[in-house]
């Protein structure tokens, strides 16, 4: 990947859900540079989540170009895209990020259990130490052995961030992770998130309908300007 080429590069991308007549997404051009903290806003139904799912490789566009880290996702098989996601992408949901029958610790270590590449990226450092370091940064060190049902929503979101960033993925996708938090926690949560993302050199793409937090990001875009599908 050359220094100047963007981390995410989308051109003339079409996506229509199966059984639907009109496309949900038509993105003529959209790029994200390495190291950005991009805020994408738009009302529900504007295709925010769909875009994130396409970038993560869970959904495949019908046509168009989608390159991440210089790799063409449209040329990959579903299994290759899943492996790509496991290696390079962290994902934080709006809520219910954690698997209820696993402990906090077990939830956090999921990505490195699923991807050998992601584990290798930790280097020779002890996995346990890395997990404890991230959790220390996020202020959730004392929650590690707890059951996920015992901790608050705010704590759950921080655990989700720890999981998403473990093994230093190049890209962190966030689907309204702050909408379940109150205003005070929202800002605190985002500052922590950015701090860690900068530390790990992870690019953040964050979608939300809540423009109050817009000012914290390095760049902000409306879904309207990206998605030209008429809906």
């Amino acid at each position: 990947m050359s220094l100047n080429s963007p981390l995410i590069e989308i051109r003339d991308l079409h996506f229509t859900y199966e059984g639907q007549a009109t496309p949900t997404l038509f993105v003529p051009e959209f790029t994200v540079d390495s190291g950005e903290e991009l805020f994408l806003f738009g009302p529900s139904g504007s295709g925010k989540t769909t875009l994130l799912e396409i970038i993560s490789g869970v959904l495949a566009p019908q046509s168009g170009c989608l390159r991440i880290l210089g790799q063409d996702l449209t040329k990959m098989t579903p299994a290759q895209r899943d492996a790509f996601r496991a290696e390079h992408v962290g994902y934080v949901f709006q809520s219910f990020n954690l698997i209820p029958y696993l402990s906090v610790y077990e939830n956090i270590e999921l990505p490195i259990r699923l991807s050998a590449v992601r584990k290798q990226r930790l280097g020779t450092v002890d996995v346990d130490m890395v997990i404890r370091a991230i959790c220390g940064n996020l202020g959730i060190s004392d929650l590690l052995d707890k059951n996920v049902t015992q901790i608050s929503v705010g704590q759950q979101q921080r655990v989700a961030v720890a999981r998403a960033l473990l093994g230093k993925p190049q890209l962190l996708l966030c689907d309204e992770p702050t909408s379940a938090l109150d205003t005070d926690h929202r800002e605190k949560f985002l500052r922590l998130l950015f701090e860690l993302a900068e530390l790990y050199e992870t690019t953040v793409v964050f979608v939300s309908h809540d423009r109050n937090i817009e000012k914290l990001f390095s760049r902000s875009l409306s879904m309207n300007t990206i998605n030209k599908a008429t809906s």
Partner: peptide, 15 residues
């Protein structure tokens, strides 16, 4: 379903 979505997000294949 939620659990499956989480597993997919961390890189699990549908198989």
């Amino acid at each position: 379903r939620r659990e499956m979505a989480i597993l997919r997000a961390v890189g699990a294949q549908s198989k």
